[in-house]
Every structure is written in structure tokens, then in C-alpha cells.
Write a protein that binds this DNA or RNA. Sequence first.
DNA 1: CTGAAAGCGCTTACAG
DNA 2: CTGAAAGCGCTTACAG
Lengths: 318, 318
Amino acid sequence: MVTIRDIAKKMGLSISTVSRALNDNQRISVRTRRQVKEVADQLGYQPNYNARNLTNQEANSVGVIFPVNNRVVDNIFYVGLLRGINQQLNARNYVLAVAVGESADQVLENVKSMINRAQIKRFILLYSHAEDPIIELLKAASVDFVTIGKPAAGQKWPYVDNDNVNAGAAATRYLMNQYGVKQPVFVESTNGWPYEVDRKAGYLKEMALADKRPIVFSIPDDDDGTLTDALIKAHPQMDGVVAIDDYTGLKVYHRFRQLRPKQKIEVIGYNKSLPDELVDQHFHSVDLNPHEMGQSAVQLLFQMQTDRKQYTIVDYTL
Amino acid sequence: MVTIRDIAKKMGLSISTVSRALNDNQRISVRTRRQVKEVADQLGYQPNYNARNLTNQEANSVGVIFPVNNRVVDNIFYVGLLRGINQQLNARNYVLAVAVGESADQVLENVKSMINRAQIKRFILLYSHAEDPIIELLKAASVDFVTIGKPAAGQKWPYVDNDNVNAGAAATRYLMNQYGVKQPVFVESTNGWPYEVDRKAGYLKEMALADKRPIVFSIPDDDDGTLTDALIKAHPQMDGVVAIDDYTGLKVYHRFRQLRPKQKIEVIGYNKSLPDELVDQHFHSVDLNPHEMGQSAVQLLFQMQTDRKQYTIVDYTL
DNA sequence: CTGAAAGCGCTTACAG
DNA sequence: CTGAAAGCGCTTACAG
């Protein structure tokens, strides 16, 4: 292993100078800096992260925290985020460390260990929940973090998100304009996540603009189909669905097909969870561009101290 | 931050003794060990990983490497693996570091940096490809690694896998016995991955046992449907499909539905990529238990030096 | 513009 | 059974 000591010896400089040169310290002459870097390259020098982190009292890692109890289809979205995040981290010579577990306690322990033992000072949460013990921990520890998804009303922290009000309106418009849907229905869960509130607001706005009566289904995630069926039956005029996500959209679509096999319906969800080849042509999805969201999250995380910038909005694609 | 020095001072011991006691060194009396640990707990001592890693010349991290160019539906499987892996890593006070990128070169650079700068000595590959430059790098660097999926014929390294021959036979039997399928067809890609070879062998074995004529479709991943359609048309008697994976299975299922809407068909794929609520009741899937595979991968990775154990077989669920 | 020295928090060979 | 000391590879305040 070649160290800065080897470079120093070879060049007849002190290790202080070599260290400073490699870090582009202004106090070292441009010429020396260039020479040191050349020799470093030539010797195949690679900085030892553990040594640097020990001195800096800070790891060059970002902790990426997964939600507990997520749906498997959402995993598709998370890996998109991971790719975007890691692309930016690599460019900064940072390492992506993952915190994921079966229970909130497991993840909490994982994150504690990242903070206290690994000395990780920056985190990205792949979700945004109100009253999350992880968020409390991160705040208490005074480390930087960014969430994917904006915080609930009354909370405030840096985040990356889409413009969900617009995305809700655009999806509604899409069904009406592209597919001639007369009576789109909005389907939400009973969780009331911030993005649900916003997409619904967009739907309601668009319905008002089109002078149509809005219809909202609130279906718990664990509904076995009974409630979904009842709601479909209660609204014979529905011919389109704006679903809060692909999972919900596909569930409603399937129930609808069972109940009214002959009748036409267009459904749109969010997340682009499945490629077009695997879904029916009447099922659509808004792409939230996870790769770009991931990249933006890192950018936000690394410019927070200087900018105090609070959020980034990423475009959706329809 | 409390360090071993603080514990030593408080107890009137040397830091050597404290370090040894915390590491359960036999040379320290059981009594002292217990006392040191008690005081450590009481003070809220947390070991500094960067310091330890610097001394040990080895990071307490495992690099988890994603494939390039995977299909998005496979992401579901990868996150399952990640959860299994991290559960075992947390128990060992290890950190999960991810290598993922858009191109083989990006990932290669990422892994190089993990080896040379972060001093990571153990890796898990979430895939198993022949002639992979990453594998070559890991071998050349003499670090330990385990792949998910067995190596191609002629290659040899430690891995975790299912018994794919059995899984191929079981899926074929399942269609015939549970759903009365008369003529199951096997659909593979043109990639020839080891698991394809094995699942096909299982299918062929089962067909021979049942005294039926095997039919194999080889469809390139990028087929736009033309070849799939042609093959379906050429085999009017097919009433069941054993597909190499869920992606392929769903594609064939959709084409079949378009071509012969009235005719009954049962399809089975692999990976349990989608929850039951989201797929038709005639679509089935073999669960490869990624969570367990991930756990086994870590166990194998940590007992390699002692056992020279070469692989672990994890059960599938049907 | 450059260097000598201290220090980050551990582990472990050597000594007793 | 325990301790003093060296060392892992960096960064940086202090000195010149």
C-alpha cells in the first residue's frame, strides 16, 4: 500500500506538504501541488479512508434509510433512488451505506450505530413519515438529512419531491383528454401521506375546472377487496381511475375487471412500477423519475450548510 | 464521545487491558472483563469504527454489488436480498455498503475504491455472470466474495442458490397436478444463465417422467412480441407455461391473452416479483426466498476461511 | 511557501 | 494477569 509518506520520501518533501497538496491547499504553490499529484498518480496512491475519517472525526459515507413495512412493488422505486444517489456519491468519493430492517427498532439501532460508531454525518431517508423516531434521532444528533417526499404539514426539514398537486391534476387531465374519460374517480389510501393530500388536491382542482363532480374512494391498504367492490358497485358511471399509486391502481383495476368485464376503464397510478410490456394498455403510470430524485437528494445534502436550501422539486413524466 | 481511555481512567486500568477486555481476550480475567463491560455500558461507550478499521487494516463493511442493466421488476428481489443481508450484518456489527451504477465501468470503479480506499475485504454479488470483470477484480485483489446464483459450468467460487433443477421440475408438476395442464411449454431467454439451464433440465426431466413431449421457446429479452406471437401460434395445443422468470412469464401471458382471449392458460414464473393481488389468478410464481438467500450469503461469507465451504442451497417455496 | 509534531481512537507485540 | 509503547495513515495548529 502506498501512503503519503511514500510520496513525501520520493519527492523529498514533508508529509504535511504532500497532504496539503493533495487536498489543494492554497498555501502550497500551484507547481508543487501539480507535481505531488503527478507522483501520486504515478505511484498509484489511494487515500486510506479509515485514516482520514479518524482524523476528520467524520465518515465519508451517507446513510440511506429504507422504510419499514413497505410494499414489495415499491422496491422498484427504491433501487431507482439508490442508483441516482450512488452516482452522485461516487463523484464525491463518498460511500453509500444502507440501513434497512424488519422493524422500526432494528432500523433505529442500525442508524444509531451509523451515527455513533461509524461517525456518519449525512443521511437520506427514502420516505417521509410524520412522527418518525428515526427523524427525531437524526435531529437530536444534529446530523444532516434529506427525505424523499416532503414532510407533513407543520413539520419542516429539507426534502426532494415532485410537484404532486400538479401531478394529480395532470393525471386527471390525461385520462380526460387522451382517453375521453368522463367520470374519473380518485382512489387514496387511509394513510394520509403528504403526497396523497397533494395529488388529491390536484385531482379536485382539475375536476372543478372541468366542472365535474369529484368522487374519492378511501381504501385501507389491507382491504381484502370487499370495500373496493362496494365502492365500484356504488358508482356505475365511473370510467376512469386516478390511483394514489400503482399498487392501489392495479388492485382497483383487477376488481373492476372482475365485476364489469365488458366495460371500458382507464386507470392511472404513480411510480412507473412496472414496464409497459407487463401491464394492460389501459393501465398508465406517472413516472416520478427516481434516479433524478436520488441525485437531487445528494446535491441538496451537500449544499445544505452553505445554502440553507430547503427542498428540490423534480419533474414527473407522463 | 467516550473512548476506551475514559473507561481506563475511571477504572484505574490501562487502555490495553480495557481494549482486551472489550474484545474478550482470554488473557484478561473473567472478572475484569465483566467489570470493564459494565463500566463501558454505564458510560455509553461506543467503539469508533474508523479507529479500529485503521488499526486492523480492514473495514467492518461488506460491499454489496448490484448488476448493471437489470430489469426493474428484479429490483423487488434485490431489496429482499438486501434486507436478509443487512439483518445478518447488523448482528455482526458490520456495515452494508452498496456498489451500483449505470455502466460496468462505473461499478468497477466503485468496487476498486471500496477495496483500495475503504479497505473492504468482503463482497456479495447479487448476480452471477460468466466472464464478469468485477469477479476478476475481486479474485486478483484476494478479497472474499459470494455470489447469489451459482457460477457457470467451468467456473468455481462460493455461492448461494436454490436447487433450480428441482424448482424447474416442481413448477412443471405444479401446473400439471394442480391445474390439469396437459401441455406445458418452457420459455427461456437466450442468455443461457446457469439457473436457466437448471430449470430447463428440471422441466425436461419432469416431462420425460410424465411421458410428454417437451416444447421449449427461446425468446430474446428484447423481442417486441413478434417471435413470442409466432411461437404461440405454432403451438395451438399449449395450455401451460413454465417461464424462466416472472418478467418473461407475464410477457407470454399477455401475448397469449391477446391472441386467444377465450382459451384457458396457466403460467408459472420465478421470483414472486408481484403480490397476488396484482396478478391474475392464472399467473403463479415460485418464491426463491431472497431474504433467506441474503442471510445465507453473509453466513457463508463469514465462515469461508474456516470452513472452505463452497455453497449454500436455500429452499424455494411453491 | 514548507516542516516538525501532536493527535484522532484503536490493537497488539513485547515486556514484566 | 496487566501495562507501556509503537503504530495504523491521515490532518492541521503552530512555528518558521
